[in-house]
């Protein structure tokens, strides 16, 4: 058998495997998960015993994180998604801190 058989890139395959598993899991679970968070701030009185909820919550959070970060890095090559993502994060942090500082000052002045 001739031809340049380049070696299988096992890490990349496992990363993609993990991505597709987490993405499928998130596709089914994430919307209803966030919807319940929106409708009742369940964090303050979790339905399940404390430690189970934390594990479930962290699990869903990890899956959401993994597949979105993988997708951002994978599409960075052609869509420059990583720079766009960092730009958005930066602008959100800047926006919030400006609003908070103003809000704090107004509080201090006693306007509010």
């Amino acid at each position: 058998m001739s031809g340049n058989i380049n070696k299988p890139d096992i890490i990349k395959s496992l990363k993609w495997g993990a991505f597709s598993v987490t993405a499928t899991f998130c596709a089914f679970v994430l919307p209803v998960f966030i919807f319940t968070l929106l409708s009742t701030p369940v964090v303050f009185n979790p339905p399940l015993p404390d430690w189970i909820f934390i594990i479930v919550f962290l699990g869903v959070l990890f899956c959401a994180f993994y597949h979105s970060i993988y997708r951002i890095y994978a599409s960075d090559h052609d869509l420059q998604l990583k720079s766009k993502f960092l730009f958005w994060i930066g602008s959100i942090i800047a926006g919030i801190s400006v609003i908070e500082i103003l809000h704090f000052i107004l509080l201090k002045i006693g306007v509010l």
């Binding site: 998130c26 994430l30 966030i34 959070l61 959401a64 994180f65 597949h67 979105s68 970060i69 997708r71 951002i72 599409s75 869509l79 998604l81 766009k84 993502f85 958005w88 994060i89 959100i92």
Partner: peptide, 15 residues
């Protein structure tokens, strides 16, 4: 692909 950014922002907020 952009839906990835939104979910990542949501995740960062929860952190």
């Amino acid at each position: 692909e952009y839906s990835g950014i939104l979910i990542a922002i949501w995740g960062l907020y929860w952190l």
